[in-house]
Computed example of a mutant assay.
Amino acid sequence: MSIEARLNELGIALPDAAAPAANYVPFVRTGNLLYVSGQVPQQDGKLVVGQLGAGYSVEDGKAAARLCGLSLIAQVRKASGDLDKVRVLKLNGFVNATADFGEHPAVINGASDLMVEVFGEKGRHARSAVGSSSLPFGVAVEVEGIFEIE
């Protein structure tokens, strides 16, 4: 089954690939590697803001990370033109969290689980999940990725 068919079967509609918010590009391809800039969670055109450990739950954070993952896939589709030729190599997740919050991996699972759901075995990847005292625009999560294009 093609990745586009899988997205349809799962009822997943990818957002439009977002334009950069500053002086950078959304992705860079070198050879068969694609580096995608950090994607922030957006829903219905609005940023998803919040801080884990300060009234924002792990499940809320996981949902925000999934939104970041959807944006990553949208950027990859724009860059590659064919999601069937894509393998996910690495995700780096940043969690806006209080100093005592420690469930960063559970939050970033929202993006990781999505990659496996969409790409199957080619969605399994290396990963980092890091806490930060703040993120741009007050968003809850930011996720960047490295992909291989066959």
Score class of each variant (00 low, 15 high):
13 A>V: 13
37 S>P: 15
52 L>C: 04
85 K>W: 08
140 A>L: 01
72 L>Y: 03
145 G>N: 01
147 F>P: 01
96 N>A: 04
119 F>R: 07
56 Y>P: 05
43 Q>G: 14
69 G>D: 04
70 L>Y: 05
131 G>E: 03
36 V>A: 09
115 M>K: 07
80 S>D: 08
90 K>G: 07
45 G>V: 02
133 S>K: 04
120 G>W: 06
64 A>M: 08
59 E>I: 09
15 P>E: 08
128 S>D: 09
95 V>P: 00
102 G>M: 06
41 P>A: 05
103 E>A: 10
1 M>D: 14
7 L>Y: 04
132 S>Q: 12
112 S>N: 11
148 E>D: 09
6 R>C: 13
4 E>C: 10
34 L>R: 04
13 A>Y: 14
1 M>Q: 14
133 S>P: 07
33 L>C: 12
93 G>D: 02
136 P>E: 05
115 M>W: 00
97 A>G: 07
107 V>P: 01
52 L>H: 01
17 A>G: 12
137 F>I: 10
125 H>Y: 06
21 A>Y: 13
150 E>T: 14
117 E>M: 12
92 N>V: 15
147 F>T: 02
7 L>A: 02
7 L>E: 03
4 E>M: 14
131 G>F: 01
150 E>Q: 13
19 A>Y: 03
21 A>G: 13
73 I>E: 03
50 G>E: 06
132 S>W: 09
